[in-house]
Design a protein around this nucleic acid. Structure first.
Lengths: 211, 211
DNA sequence: TAGATTGTTAATCGATTAACAATC
DNA sequence: TAGATTGTTAATCGATTAACAATC
């Protein structure tokens, strides 16, 4: 068994940022970049960039820097942009609707297969070509389709119910737009969005600055 | 001049979480709680809770713990939930629409005054009772209304333009839903949401777990 | 080769956790 | 008072930054 150093969440959360900046560099037709140049663009230290990248491999070349295209490809691989994930949305409210209409996710490998809701006037309709099913059909749907990720956009009173069902159906990933923290145990990966938290932090920082 | 210890972003980002948990405790009619009990609920250490709270003041009582109602009020004050912020939304697309329809923000003190878009068939319409104006009217609107926060949900090609205008109009807070990082300098507070980043991190963690 | 820049080790910094005296 | 639990200082841990030998 190979001894692998655990990669910290701090590093992982920076990966999509590297991915974006490299993608921009490609658009700008920049072929090579040093950690120093990249550090100026990204407003982080060159040291941190080199440390981060070396968690995954030596992608650069001494005296030269990094080949932008190559580094982009490597980070793409790390982030798994070649892989596809099947998603379902629980809750066809405002946020569920907005997410169903986001074309970017499909481009990144995340396909939305179906939407589930309890409201009679939504069931049977389509949102951006994706059918809205009754929540009653969720178990059946998951039994017949491989579902990797449940996107939770249900209202507050339905959160626990929805999270419990999703877990019991064996779905391993939850993209959580509800205000709850959903500690669902080991096997489940939860990525929280917590919009209200973000807004409150903005408010705090604004007032702090103003003082 | 009073020497104030700088409060770290790590602590600040936990504040809304304390706020939520305390709000839940009130709903459960729990009157007092020790850092130990709260730590079990929140899955963080009691030490961290006491350290965090003591950045702002001694809200507890030795031998007793914390009075839930009182602590909730104090954290509310720190987060400024009594204050009101005036917001505008730039971009009446899917996300702009969803945010305009979120009733929660108003409840937390964030009022959405207006929405701006370039598309002729949206201008003049209302979303959740909030008028959609032409982007041409933005400067005029900001001159006549105190605007604290601009919520950026514009498409990629409009990001720099929108951010530049918002900054030049003197708006001090940006809630950024675009994929860009917007380094706009000192005076501006930017809070990023970066949904795609979040989704990619979820994908990474899922694949990592699966291996 | 000389210059540049990485990969990597060591030093520093900051955040988390532990410990315990203060005190309700 | 005795027990409990805070507020706070000290210890630890992890993440960031600096330094530099390796090497292109």
């Amino acid at each position: 068994m190979i001894e692998e150093k655990k990669i910290s969440m701090a590093v992982i959360r920076r990966l999509p940022r590297y991915f974006r900046y490299l993608s921009d560099l490609i658009k700008l037709d920049i072929k090579r970049i040093s950690s120093k140049e990249l550090s100026e663009r990204m407003q982080i230290t060159a040291s941190q960039i080199r440390q981060d990248l070396n968690c995954f491999g030596g992608f650069g070349q001494q005296g030269y820097g990094y080949n932008v295209e190559y580094l982009y490809e490597e980070i793409s691989k790390i982030l798994g942009t070649d892989k596809r994930f099947s998603c379902i949305i629980l809750g066809a409210g405002n946020m569920g609707n907005a997410l169903a209409n986001y074309e970017n996710f499909k481009k990144r490998g995340y396909d939305i297969l179906a939407i589930f809701d309890v409201s009679e006037d939504k069931i049977g309709k389509k949102i951006n070509g994706i059918e809205v099913y009754s929540t009653d059909k969720l178990a059946e749907f998951v039994a017949n389709n491989k579902v990797d990720i449940a996107i939770l956009t249900v209202p507050n009173k339905k959160i626990i119910e929805a999270a419990t069902e999703v877990t019991s159906l064996g779905i391993k990933g939850i993209w959580n737009f509800t205000p709850s923290d959903l500690s669902l145990g080991e096997g489940i990966v939860v990525e929280n969005v917590h919009l209200s938290d973000s807004l409150m932090v903005l408010g705090y920082r604004l007032r702090e600055k103003g003082e």
